[in-house]
Design a protein around this nucleic acid. Structure first.
Lengths: 153, 153
DNA sequence: GTGGCTGCAAAGCTTTTGCATGTTC
DNA sequence: GAACATGCAAAAGCTTTGCAGCCAC
């Protein structure tokens, strides 16, 4: 669960992490990271952009793209694997899985110890050196379930 | 492993599957399915297009997109979840996982019984009705490993 | 002060759409 | 022959790029 304390913790570490990586701490970067650190909805670049624009009206979408890409490269963010939808980012880089709604695209974090242990173990894959693993469950979220029930009934 | 017998089997079932689904059996559809059924490389739409164009020079890329989307909807094909690269398709819809090379994008099928059993089981996810699950391993393929070793050494 | 970062505008790719024409059943 | 599929061209995303000016350090 995402608590206020956890958000504060992530955000407070951000400047140091940037410095350690040799990255400058700009308003735009702080805003992007802060927005994602406080979010559980796995926002798209467009969503990050329109959110941070409220406090930083001159920011550009291209910059948001550049920042997201950079943070992903440096491991500050995780990119959720989807079947071809727009990019979605997650500031929670601790091992966990995702459930994606086939209908509305909602992404929910899944923390399941039994699954995690196996899926995050590095399997014996011939000819491949595994660095990390994504587990993505596809299905219908509660909202879309009740919506489709209404249509039928 | 993809044997000639398995390819023949898939291709021979194709017309019946179309009819059962109420889909017309056209040259374009047969070519797209045949190409994917005989492939282990998880081709992109563009790759399917340029391949089948050799025997069907008038086919259009838009048609390939429409066919791939249709086949995916009807469950003839699986779409591989990627972190935002181009779409990749797989005619093997039996349960299995994928390993994707971070550097060159090569996708390899993974058949691991212990993993499969767990990842394909439907977990207890509150507020979600799970229909299927993707497990994607990320890492370096053999080729890219030796290439990066050469650079260093 | 300098190197790195941002904003802008433009381009690049992938994918989708609308419609007239052609094909399957 | 009717319904459905295709091909074309155009548009619609999403994402990247190049470069002049700006800002963090």
């Amino acid at each position: 669960m995402l608590t206020q304390a956890l958000i504060r913790d992530r955000v407070s570490r951000f400047p140091t992490r940037c410095k350690n990586a040799g990255l400058k701490v700009t308003h735009q970067r702080t805003a992007v990271y802060g927005m994602l650190a406080a979010s559980e909805s796995h926002p798209s670049p467009e969503e990050v952009y329109s959110q941070i624009r409220q406090n930083l009206p001159t920011v550009s979408l291209a910059t948001v793209y550049k920042i997201l890409d950079l943070f992903h490269k440096y491991g500050f963010l995780r990119k959720v694997s989807t079947e071809g939808q727009v990019a979605r980012y997650d500031a929670n880089v601790d091992p966990h899985h995702h459930a994606i709604c086939t209908q509305c695209g909602t992404i929910k974090d899944i923390f399941q110890e039994s699954d995690a242990r196996i899926a995050l173990a590095q399997p014996e894959v011939s000819d491949f050196t595994i660095t990390h693993c994504d587990v993505i469950y596809h299905g219908l979220c509660k909202g879309c379930q009740s919506r489709s029930r209404q249509k039928k009934g």
